[in-house]
């Protein structure tokens, strides 16, 4: 295997990531590799730093004024924190879906889908095909096709979240980061999002933060278990294939967590 294919095998890689907020050290020495076309779940109790970590992967982390970072994030071998890199270009390749559905309230469904292209100044790429394709990939086309010009907020919460996924997909990213995308949704909407995730991994890598153990098992190929001891920075206890993490965890703390003994 030459180095080029090595890089392709690991689209996205976090190396020795440390994070601070002001003087507080919140993440310590996180090393994770996110294989292409796979879903990686980040699990762990509240406050262990998994949401903080996922934000370092598309440079959303730096929007918090006191935030600090050490280590590097490699996307196709290049450090996204390099001085020469424009963060907005990183975010075009690494899309993000948030905990709460957040479609733009002043825009229609269609305008939301193409909003990223407008925001990043790529209006020439806008087309009806792109709208249809993005909504189809997010399993939203059948519900949205007859109401493209209606306000995005006329959709239900689950539909809004799938619209946000479509909005991300219109940018044609290599990776999508999802920060507890189903925590505000009902079980039916959650199931549909999970089906969408499984379809999407054919064409991209997905990193998902979830509190829901069953969800991690249903959708992910790899799982990383994060933990933070009292007043100590969070770290990765164990990282491996999802089946292994849930069925034969190496670390007793992983075993306790995935079996619901704490957290």
């Amino acid at each position: 295997m030459n180095s080029k294919t090595m890089n392709r095998a690991f689209h996205l890689e976090a190396k020795d990531i440390n994070v601070w907020f002001g003087e507080r050290h919140v993440l310590k020495d996180v090393n994770l590799q996110f294989p292409s076309n796979q879903v990686t779940a980040l699990i762990g109790p509240s406050g262990c730093g998994k949401s903080t970590f996922i934000r370092t992967l598309n440079r959303m982390h730096e929007l918090i004024p006191t935030a600090g970072l050490a280590g590097s994030v490699l996307l196709d071998g290049d450090d996204i924190y390099d001085d020469a890199v424009d963060p907005s270009q990183v975010r075009l390749k690494v899309g993000m879906v948030f905990q709460k559905p957040n479609p733009f309230p002043t825009m229609s469904i269609k305008e939301n889908v193409i909003s990223g292209l407008k925001l990043s100044g790529r209006k020439n790429e806008i087309s009806n095909d792109l709208v249809e394709d993005s909504l189809k990939r997010a399993s939203m086309w059948n519900e949205a096709k007859d109401r493209l010009d209606e306000p995005a907020l006329s959709l239900s919460g689950g539909q809004q979240q799938r619209l946000c996924i479509a909005r991300s997909l219109a940018m044609n990213p290599e990776v999508i980061l999802m920060d507890e995308p189903c925590s505000a949704l009902d079980p039916g909407s959650t199931r549909r999002i999970e089906e969408t995730i499984l379809e999407l991994k054919e064409t991209m890598s997905i990193v998902i933060v979830t509190h829901n153990m069953q969800q991690a098992q249903r959708v992910s190929d790899k799982t990383a278990f994060f933990l933070a001891d009292d007043n100590q920075p969070g770290y990765v206890v164990e990282f491996g294939d999802t089946q292994q993490i849930f069925n034969q965890p190496v670390d007793p703390r992983t075993n306790d967590y995935v079996n619901g003994h704490f957290g």
């Binding site: 975010r91 709460k100 733009f104 990043s120």
Partner: peptide, 14 residues
């Protein structure tokens, strides 16, 4: 809503 601003930045907006 701060989430809207975050969404915009995450979509490559400046």
């Amino acid at each position: 809503d701060d989430d809207l601003i975050k969404a915009s930045i995450a979509l490559g907006g400046n």
